[in-house]
């Protein structure tokens, strides 16, 4: 019994470690030709979770800046960025991954869209957020999977 538990624990430890090893750190994300080809985690994104992250004010809060016809029931869509309708036609997932992880890599330094998986941020970051990204690697994959479904 004791032995069995030890083995199970050991197996868990190994999977946890390898999951982390598969996750690309924000400073190691490889932007090439305005795209990020490789998944940041190796685990496919979940569009349903991605949809929640997109509208959640504490997570993506993408709706703060982008209107999105798929979310007509939500109040208050921002107009700072382009409408999301058809974004899945206009961009490949690898491009969406680049835009969402660090919009500056695609649109240039001047863009106001935050880098959601970037540590290249502004001055005086709130103490508890130093070194942290807005979204996790898996959340980026989820949002990419969701935005890729926005086709017209």
């Amino acid at each position: 019994m004791i032995r069995a538990t030890a083995i199970v624990t050991a197996v868990f430890a190994v999977t946890a470690a390898s999951a982390l090893a598969d996750e690309t750190a924000p400073q190691d994300v490889n932007f090439e030709d305005l795209a990020v080809m490789a998944s940041l985690t190796g685990t496919p994104g979940d569009p349903v979770t991605g949809r929640d992250i997109f509208k959640d004010r504490k997570l993506g809060n993408c709706l703060a800046c982008h209107t999105n016809a798929d979310m007509q029931k939500e109040l208050f869509h921002g107009t700072v960025g382009p409408a999301m309708d058809g974004a899945g036609d206009r961009w490949e997932p690898a491009q969406l991954r680049a835009i969402i992880a660090d919009a500056k890599e695609v649109f240039g330094e001047q863009t106001v869209m935050p880098g959601f998986y970037s540590v290249n941020v502004g001055k005086d970051v709130r103490e508890d957020l130093v070194g942290k990204t807005i979204l996790t690697a898996q959340q980026i994959e989820d949002v990419v999977a969701y935005v890729a479904t926005l086709k017209e």
Binding site: N61, F76, V112, P114, V125, R126
Partner: peptide
């Protein structure tokens, strides 16, 4: 014009580049 914080905005990001736009409500 200096960008601050994790969201990386300057005053100008909102009140110059985007004045007239809606940001959420």
């Amino acid at each position: 014009y200096t960008r601050t914080g994790q969201l990386n905005f300057a005053c100008a990001s909102c009140h110059e580049a985007n004045s007239g736009q809606r940001i959420r409500a």
